[in-house]
Amino acid sequence: MPKGEVLPDENLLESALTEFKEETGKTIEGKFIELSPVQQKSGKKSMPGLWKVMSKCQIFKAIPS
């Protein structure tokens, strides 16, 4: 999962899209739905800035065995 530091005045989704492109070399488009932070069993909360999206972006190439 691509992740990076976000400055206080930055838009979280725009930063996430930039980070995704930097780490994968791909752009992704679609309807982004922001996910609510969840509390893990350890008590730690997930970070804000998580989205789900349906897209036809192929990140990995299948390698025949």
Rank of each mutant, 00 (worst) to 15 (best):
M1F: 15
P2C: 06
P2H: 06
P2I: 11
P2T: 09
K3D: 15
K3N: 14
K3F: 15
G4I: 09
G4P: 10
G4L: 05
G4E: 06
E5C: 09
E5K: 15
E5A: 12
L7P: 10
L7M: 10
L7K: 02
P8V: 14
D9V: 07
D9P: 06
E10G: 09
E10A: 12
N11K: 06
N11I: 10
L13A: 10
E14M: 03
E14V: 05
E14H: 08
S15T: 12
S15H: 12
S15M: 07
S15F: 13
A16N: 07
A16C: 08
A16R: 04
A16S: 09
L17C: 14
L17E: 15
L17H: 13
L17A: 03
T18Q: 06
E19S: 10
F20A: 01
F20D: 11
F20H: 08
K21N: 15
E22T: 11
E22C: 04
E23I: 03
E23G: 07
G25R: 00
K26P: 13
K26N: 15
T27I: 11
E29M: 02
G30W: 09
G30P: 00
G30R: 00
G30A: 06
K31E: 14
K31M: 05
K31Q: 10
K31H: 09
K31F: 13
F32K: 01
F32D: 03
I33F: 12
I33D: 15
E34Q: 06
E34S: 09
L35Y: 12
S36Y: 08
S36D: 04
S36G: 05
P37Y: 09
P37K: 05
V38L: 12
Q39H: 04
Q39T: 14
Q39R: 01
Q39V: 14
Q40G: 05
K41Q: 13
K41I: 11
K41M: 07
S42V: 00
G43Q: 10
G43R: 02
K44Y: 12
K45D: 14
K45Y: 13
K45F: 11
S46A: 01
S46T: 14
M47D: 05
M47T: 10
M47A: 11
P48L: 05
P48A: 06
P48V: 05
P48F: 09
P48Q: 06
G49T: 05
G49L: 00
L50G: 09
L50D: 07
W51C: 06
K52Q: 04
M54Y: 15
M54V: 14
S55E: 03
S55I: 00
K56D: 14
C57E: 01
C57T: 12
Q58A: 03
Q58H: 01
Q58P: 00
I59R: 01
I59L: 06
I59F: 08
I59P: 00
F60S: 00
I63R: 01
I63G: 02
I63Y: 08
P64G: 05
P64N: 02
S65I: 01
S65D: 04
